[in-house]
């Protein structure tokens, strides 16, 4: 959609709009399921950040990914029944799931139903600002998705973590 009309091979605009709309609706359903399931099952506790010592934990994990992993050091925060995510994972998942995804959903609804969007905000087109927010959130989520996919290869084997993607457990 973003590069519609480009000369190189692309999905036709109408198809990309349709795919985009359907994906958006699926995302909304999934997100509602995620929020409700987190609340009902108590899975939400894994997304709660305790301020105390969190920065140090983040630094420890970052150091491991950028240095320790190559020296075959032990992971500083191994995954267990009590600890589903390491601190860096937790931070990125909280930002992605509770900031980026809600914002991309809200702006997406505004674009899917443009008549509901405020027409002008401080002299700027409301639709333009909504789309700008949607695109920026999309960009950050793309970055998250790339890193997320790569980190999946860091399990016991190169493929074991891809299983975790579906069942939610390491």
């Amino acid at each position: 959609m973003h590069n519609a009309g480009a000369n190189f091979f692309m999905v036709p605009f109408e198809v990309s709009v349709l795919v985009h709309n359907i994906s958006g609706i699926i995302l909304v359903i999934n997100f509602i399921y995620f929020v409700v399931a987190n609340r009902v099952t108590g899975n939400g506790k894994y997304y709660q950040i305790k301020k105390k010592g969190f920065t140090e934990k983040i630094w420890k994990q970052t150091r491991y990914y950028s240095w320790g992993i190559f020296k075959h050091e032990k992971a500083p925060f191994p995954i267990s029944g009590k600890r589903k995510f390491n601190p860096l994972q937790k931070l990125s998942y909280v930002v992605a799931m509770y900031v980026l995804v809600p914002l991309i959903i809200i702006s997406g609804i505004g674009l899917l139903f443009p008549e509901t969007t405020i027409s002008s905000v401080f002299g700027k087109s409301g639709l333009w600002l909504t789309d700008l927010l949607h695109q920026i959130m999309g960009f950050f989520l793309t970055v998250f998705w790339l890193i997320h996919l790569y980190f999946c290869t860091m399990g016991k084997s190169w493929t074991s973590n891809f299983r975790s993607m579906f069942n939610g457990w390491h």
Binding site: H2, A4, F13, S125, L127, W128, D131
Partner: peptide
């Protein structure tokens, strides 16, 4: 855009 409009793809 200066016309309070926004055309997806044309205004990237």
């Amino acid at each position: 855009i200066t016309n309070d409009s926004y055309v997806i793809s044309a205004n990237s």
